[in-house]
C-alpha cells in the first residue's frame, strides 16, 4: 500500500514537472521576442526592455524556467502586464468563481447520473431504459454553450427568473449560487449524460460476472445483489470517467463563463490572449493542468480504496 502510494506520488511529481516544461517551452517558442510580441509593433525599446525584465526573460532558458517555477512555488506568478498587478491576485479572485462552478456542476451531474444509470441498468431493455438512454444520447449531442444560450433565452429573456449573466460576488452567497445555477446546469447536462451511460454499462458488465451468480445462489435478491456486489465493482470505470470529466468541466467552464459573462479563469485567459498578456496565459494554464493532474491522482487513490487487488504491488 505504502509502496504503491509512493510510486504514484512520484509519477504525480514527474507529470507536474513535465507539464510545466511543456507549457513553458510552448510560450517561449513564440516567434521573435515575447516582450516585443506582447507590446505590439509600436513599442519603445526601453518599454520592451522593462517588460523583458518583468517577464524574467533575461538569462538562459534553464535559468528562466527555474525562476518561473521557484516563483510559482512561492506563490509568485509574476506581474500581469495589462493589469499591472500580480497574476496571483488576479487568479485568486477568479478561482472564487471557476472552482465553485466546476464543483457545482460536478455535483449536479453525479446527482443526475447515478439514479438514471442505475434505473436504466436495472430495467435493462425496458421502456424506462430506452427512454433514459435516448435522453442521454441527446444530452451528449447538445453543445453545452448552446444549451447555455437556450437556458438564457428561456429563463432570463422570456421568463426573467434570473439575470442573463454577471456575478454578484460571494458577499451574498445565495445570489452567488443563483448566478451560478444556470451555468452549472449547462455544464452538467452533457457530463451527466455521459456518466449515466458509463454507469449503466459498468453495472451491466459486472452483472455478467460469476460472483453475481454466486450472490444470487446465496439467496440475495436482484436488488440486493446490485447494491452489495455490482456497485462497488462498477465504481472503477465510473471513477475513471469522473476524473476525466473534471478536466472537461474545467475546460467547459472556460467557455460557459463566456456565455454568462462570469468573471472566472476562462474570461481571464481569453483576455490574456487578446491582450497578449502571455504571463497570465502561462500561469493560468499551468494552474488548470495542475488541478487536472491532482484530480487524476486523487482518482487513483480512490481506486486503491475501491479495489483491494490494487493495494498489493
Amino acid at each position: 500500500m505504502v509502496r504503491s502510494l509512493l510510486s504514484r506520488i512520484l509519477s504525480l511529481s514527474v507529470s507536474l514537472v513535465v507539464a510545466s516544461m511543456v507549457i513553458f517551452l510552448m510560450l517561449q517558442a513564440v516567434p521573435g521576442d515575447p516582450a516585443a510580441f506582447m507590446l505590439g509593433l509600436n513599442a519603445q525599446p526601453d518599454t520592451i526592455a522593462a517588460l523583458r525584465a518583468d517577464l524574467g526573460l533575461e538569462g538562459s532558458l534553464g535559468q528562466r524556467y527555474l525562476t518561473w517555477v521557484k516563483g510559482m512555488l512561492a506563490g509568485d506568478f509574476g506581474q500581469s502586464y495589462t493589469y499591472r498587478v500580480p497574476v496571483a491576485d488576479l487568479v485568486v479572485d477568479r478561482i472564487g468563481v471557476s472552482a465553485p462552478l466546476a464543483v457545482y456542476a460536478l455535483i449536479l451531474s453525479v446527482v443526475l447520473a447515478v439514479p438514471i444509470g442505475l434505473i436504466a441498468a436495472s430495467r435493462r431493455g425496458g421502456a424506462a431504459d430506452w427512454g433514459m438512454m435516448g435522453a442521454t444520447q441527446l444530452g451528449i449531442a447538445i453543445p453545452n454553450f448552446w444549451f447555455a444560450m437556450l437556458l438564457v433565452l428561456v429563463f432570463a429573456v422570456k421568463l426573467r427568473w434570473v439575470s442573463a449573466g454577471g456575478f454578484p460576488g460571494w458577499s451574498d452567497p445565495l445570489a452567488a449560487i443563483k448566478a451560478l445555477t444556470l451555468p452549472a446546469i449547462a455544464l452538467a447536462l452533457p457530463q451527466a449524460s455521459i456518466l449515466a451511460r458509463v454507469l449503466r454499462s459498468a453495472v451491466l458488465d459486472t452483472l455478467d460476472q460469476d460472483y453475481i451468480r454466486t450472490a444470487r445462489a446465496k439467496g440475495l435478491s436482484q436488488r440486493a445483489t446490485v447494491v452489495r456486489h455490482a456497485l462497488r465493482n462498477a465504481a472503477i470505470p465510473v471513477l475513471t470517467i469522473l476524473g476525466l470529466q473534471f478536466s472537461f468541466l474545467l475546460a467547459g467552464a472556460i467557455i460557459i463563463e463566456n456565455v454568462f459573462f462570469l468573471p472566472g479563469l476562462g474570461r481571464l485567459i481569453f483576455q490574456g490572449i487578446t491582450q497578449r498578456d502571455l504571463i497570465v496565459v502561462q500561469s493560468v494554464t499551468m494552474l488548470l493542468v495542475f488541478a487536472v493532474i491532482c484530480v487524476t491522482f486523487l482518482v487513483e487513490l480512490t481506486y486503491l480504496l475501491a479495489d483491494p487487488r490494487l493495494r498489493r504491488r
Binding site: 460476472q209 460469476d210 460472483y211 454466486t214 450472490a215 462497488r232 465493482n233 479495489d307 487487488r309
Partner: peptide, 8 residues
C-alpha cells in the same frame, strides 16, 4: 477464480 467478489 471468478466466483468470489474481488472487493469483499
Amino acid at each position: 477464480m471468478t466466483a468470489l467478489n474481488p472487493v469483499h
